[in-house]
């Protein structure tokens, strides 16, 4: 019974107005953080949501530059195209971009093949360390409520206890669009301006605004192995191939981007933005279906969030 919808059912005109509302809401939130919160930073993960967030921040503070730095937590296993894109965008827009890597973890050879706690060590812990090291008190992220069940209960302004722990039971009541930026020692804030956006909204907005995204979102012939039903793109020679696995060229694209050995691609013919939007509107599966780390069983995301995952 569940199925998606097509571009032809007359939604697009009406929904552009919804995009205006979502845009204005996100800009209001970004300005609130800049004006009311101590030491803000924007988490930049290079994906489409980050690209939208960055675009919104440019709009919110135009004509001046974005009044807070961007932070990328680099696990060392991102797609090469992502890193090239990140560095070019930062250079072209003159962004203050901080890149933080868990050097100890990297030196110890922590990798997604051998270490079940890879995401925790290289991503969650590293993010906490980066925030602590720079003394950031408010971290803006691109998470959306439609991504996963535990995220649908997330606040826009989410208070984290000392140690960056998320306790869903002690979140502050959030009324209207009012921000309560008051923090006690050790507390930090996560702020999600895209909370009310859906994956389709993000793509429609990317299309409408002409926002540049990493080419990995568009279908190309890429070397792929199929592993446990997931299509893994072999991005470099660090990929461990199992016996019998042989990369084959398939036309694939990504709906979500993370560390390459952990991110599943989808077969697609969508080579440009209009085609991607059409595909997303007709989608039958949610985007995080391609993220291996979210499938560690029911409640996987909630556990990661409690530990301080974004």
């Amino acid at each position: 019974m569940p199925h998606g919808r097509s571009l032809t059912d007359g939604l697009l005109d009406a929904l552009l107005d919804a995009l205006d509302e979502l845009e204005s809401e996100a800009i209001e939130i970004l300005r609130e953080v800049a004006a009311a919160c101590a030491r803000p930073v924007m988490l930049y993960s290079i994906g489409k949501d980050s690209s939208v967030l960055l675009h919104l921040a440019r709009k919110a503070f135009h004509p001046r530059s974005i009044p807070f730095p961007l932070l990328h937590v680099d696990t060392g296993w991102k797609f090469r195209e992502m890193l090239a894109f990140r560095d070019r965008v930062a250079r072209e827009l003159g962004l203050e971009l901080l890149v933080h890597t868990n050097e100890a973890g990297r030196a110890a050879g922590i990798n997604p093949f051998d270490h079940p706690d890879y995401t925790d060590v290289m991503k969650t812990q590293t993010l906490r360390d980066a925030l602590d090291r720079h003394g950031f008190r408010a971290a803006i992220g691109g998470a959306r409520r439609d991504e996963e069940a535990s995220r649908s209960k997330e606040r826009i302004y989410s208070v984290r206890a000392p140690g960056h722990r998320w306790d869903p039971r002690t979140q502050r009541a959030e009324f209207w669009n009012l921000c309560n930026p008051v923090l006690m020692p050790g507390q930090t804030l996560r702020v999600f301006p895209l909370s009310n956006w859906t994956e389709a909204d993000v793509w429609r907005y990317v299309l409408r605004e002409g926002i540049e995204v990493v080419p990995l979102y568009f279908a190309r012939m890429r070397p792929v192995v199929e592993r446990d039903g997931t299509l893994i793109v072999v991005d470099d020679d660090r990929m461990r191939l199992r016996a019998g696995e042989q990369p084959v060229a398939r036309k694939v694209r990504f709906r979500t981007l993370g560390c390459y050995p952990l991110t599943g691609a989808v077969e697609s013919d969508a080579q440009d933005l209009p085609a991607v939007v059409a595909e997303v509107l007709a989608a039958r599966y949610s985007e995080r279906a391609g993220r291996l780390i979210d499938q560690d069983g029911a409640g996987a995301m909630e556990r990661k969030k409690r530990d301080g995952y974004f």
Binding site: L11, L15, D146, A149, S150, R151, S152, K153, R169
Partner: peptide, 22 residues
């Protein structure tokens, strides 16, 4: 709708959840 582990286990809904639909 019951998204959180604790509420699945206890059969209750802990907090306000927000869903988009069209």
């Amino acid at each position: 709708l019951d998204g959180l582990l604790a509420e699945r286990e206890q059969g209750i809904t802990i907090d306000a959840a927000y869903r988009g639909f069209e």
